[in-house]
């Protein structure tokens, strides 16, 4: 059980001759939030979809809990207890909030074969995320804050060990961000590992245990929030100073 939840080894991805991610290595351990940040075009989204299995890297390997999943499709990785949210909301718009979560639970039961009670799982997640009051609302009628929360809830009901969050705070107001942050911290207390791609730096700096900074497709810095914030290379990368060594 010592293997990291997800590990990238020397991942290289190229799109039409342009290298988007260049020999990136990174590993995420259970029970904490691992931030993944960097300026536009740094390679965050590419690394994210490599993790999901939507893009196969040109070189390098991805391991889920020690198992090589580099050549595995997304649905098979999901069955290894990995879940994600989408920045461009990918909710089941015409279904109710309750049915969104329930369908996810049913899909999970379809491959987990464990006779768990989908209704009860759904109720639990509704309680935990505070979406109970909205249960009958249609998903595409939700305001952004709740829609993002529903993305998280739907991922949670599949009982993941690793959760990948793609800008979960985009479009949230302050209270909503606060609520999200406490929800995420509560989840890690139960041993869940979270990878967080996020632009809201206040949130990232507050809740992440480790942060990996990408720039021009490479790892610029890995460290705790304090270290990252003071790092000259990181500041340079964000502000576009010419002295940055790549």
């Amino acid at each position: 059980m010592n293997a990291p939840l997800i590990e990238f080894r020397d991942i290289t991805v190229t799109f039409g001759g342009v290298t988007a991610v260049d020999k990136v290595s990174m590993s995420v351990v259970p029970g904490g939030i691992h931030g993944l940040i960097g300026p536009n075009g740094a390679g965050k989204s590419t690394l994210f979809i490599v993790a999901c299995g939507l893009v196969r890297p040109r070189a390098g390997a991805v391991y889920l809990e020690g198992r090589d999943v580099t050549r595995m499709g997304p649905h098979r990785r999901a069955r290894l207890r990995m879940a994600r949210t989408f920045q461009q909301l990918e909710l089941f718009g015409v279904l109710s909030v309750y049915d969104n979560i329930r369908t996810a639970a049913e899909i999970r039961r379809g491959w987990a074969h464990d006779h768990s009670d989908c209704g009860r799982d759904t109720d639990e997640v509704l309680e935990r995320t505070g979406l109970r009051e909205m249960a009958d609302e249609r998903a595409d009628r939700l305001p952004t804050g709740l829609a993002r929360l529903l993305e998280v809830a739907r991922a949670l009901v599949t009982k993941p060990r690793l959760l990948l969050l793609d800008e979960p705070a985009a479009g949230l107001n302050e209270q909503e961000t606060l609520a999200l942050s406490s929800l995420l911290q509560g989840l890690t207390d139960d041993g869940l590992g979270i990878v967080l791609v996020e632009h809201d730096m206040d949130l990232v700096m507050q809740i992440c245990r480790v942060i990996t900074v990408l720039n021009m497709g490479q790892v610029l810095k890995t460290g705790n929030p304090g270290e990252v914030r003071k790092d000259h290379a990181v500041i340079g990368a964000y502000l576009g100073s010419a002295e940055v060594s790549v």
């Binding site: 649905h75 989408f86 909710l91 089941f92 279904l95 049913e106 899909i107 991922a155």
Partner: peptide
Amino acid sequence: SRYGRMLLAMRESPAACAMLGLRL
């Protein structure tokens, strides 16, 4: 039924379905 919800879910977002472990 469960199957009907799954079909709608697939129509609404194939990507999300796959990431929940569904074989499209």
